[in-house]
Write a protein that binds this DNA or RNA. Structure first.
Lengths: 198, 198
DNA sequence: TGGTTTTTAGAGACACCCCTCTAATAATGG
DNA sequence: CCATTATTAGAGGGGTGTCTCTAAAAACCA
């Protein structure tokens, strides 16, 4: 099998994630990650064809981890419970995995998606499509009889993803931590946004 | 008065804003902005002592423009109307000034606030304090009798600032535009979040 | 043991950026 | 018209980053 590796891919991605969490995607350079991992740059290039691939690995790791849990929560039968649970999950996940959450607070553009290798870009689109489909299901179940599909989806996405992430953003950007109460706040807000009008 | 200037400070800040909107704070380098403005880098250094000062100018211009309008809307007498109006304003402002909005979607850390000249940092803190005070007033007026001050402020800030900005973020990050309906969505969501429970 | 394979190790070419510094330029005031 | 002054113009040093390429190291396998 040849010489055993001193730095395995997962560990390198992990340090790249902490670098990204601390300094944003711009700080994720090949040299910076190599230095942080105590590896020579050659070892990095041995695993990632270039910086775009490294950025993709960082983003995809965070995204997959996030979406996996989200989809599990969204699978609950009662749509309102699924939605409030998902809102709570977004905050809870971010609280326990702040570095990965910080990665997700940046936009795809910041991670230079347009330069990613095609395989990685497709992997991201597949993940987004799967989660998007789960969300559409919930939105449809919650939709008021007279409401159009578009606005209903908008409202659901806002309650389940955007609003919790906004909460997370305010706490994390600035170096702080997320308080436990934020989970309740997210769930409560989602309920208010999605419960049928009185 | 000496030789008249070919590039005035405001115009340079303006091009810096479009550079920042397109490529994020990382793209705002002295050379990049100089190139975009068609000016030699020396002209830039003549007006800004260095990159941190340029980043500060970009951020402060966007922030001042945003907060000015926000405070005006928050000054409305009825607190619930002020809050929903403010939420609407955040989206409306972002819709008409997408480049400035894009600048505000990044965190202070991304703009390297810690390296700014002190004067600029203080100017930012003063602006934040003023807007924060206006928000505290609204939050206090909206607070339910049995609610504590902290959570009430959290809820108000979320409805008035975070959630509208989250909406804006989804549309702007990715290069798109903000649809006009988003203003209604923001105002509606703010109402649902802040109106007294049935 | 000796060949094969995988990986580390790091030097080096090239590009870009920050910033300094010196000249040249073009207006104004006496 | 000349001195003054604000500004443009851009060359160049020093630093850092990307990526390539060669050599050595360290395991496995026959």
């Amino acid at each position: 099998m040849g010489r055993p590796s001193r730095f395995d891919t997962d560990a390198l991605v992990e340090t790249a994630i902490t670098v990204a969490a601390r300094g944003g995607p711009a700080a994720v350079t090949m040299v910076a990650v190599a230095r942080a991992a105590g590896a020579p740059s050659g070892s990095l290039y041995h695993r990632f064809p270039g910086r775009p691939a490294l950025l993709a690995a960082v983003r995809l790791e965070a995204l997959a981890d996030f979406q996996e849990g989200l989809r599990a929560v969204l699978a609950v039968a009662d749509p309102l419970a699924a939605a409030t649970g998902a809102a709570r999950h977004v905050v809870a996940w971010s609280r326990t995995r702040p570095d990965r959450a910080r990665v997700l607070l940046y936009s795809p553009v910041d991670f230079e998606v347009e330069r990613w290798p095609v395989a990685e870009r497709e992997r991201m689109e597949r993940g987004n499509a799967r989660s998007g489909a789960a969300l559409v299901g919930i939105a449809e179940a919650l939709r008021a009889p007279e409401e159009a599909a578009g606005p209903a989806l908008e409202r659901t996405r806002m309650a389940v993803v955007d609003l919790p992430l906004a909460l997370v953003r305010r706490h994390l950007s600035g170096g702080g931590e997320i308080p436990a109460e934020a989970e309740d706040a997210a769930a409560d807000a989602a309920y208010r946004l999605l419960a049928p009008r009185p």
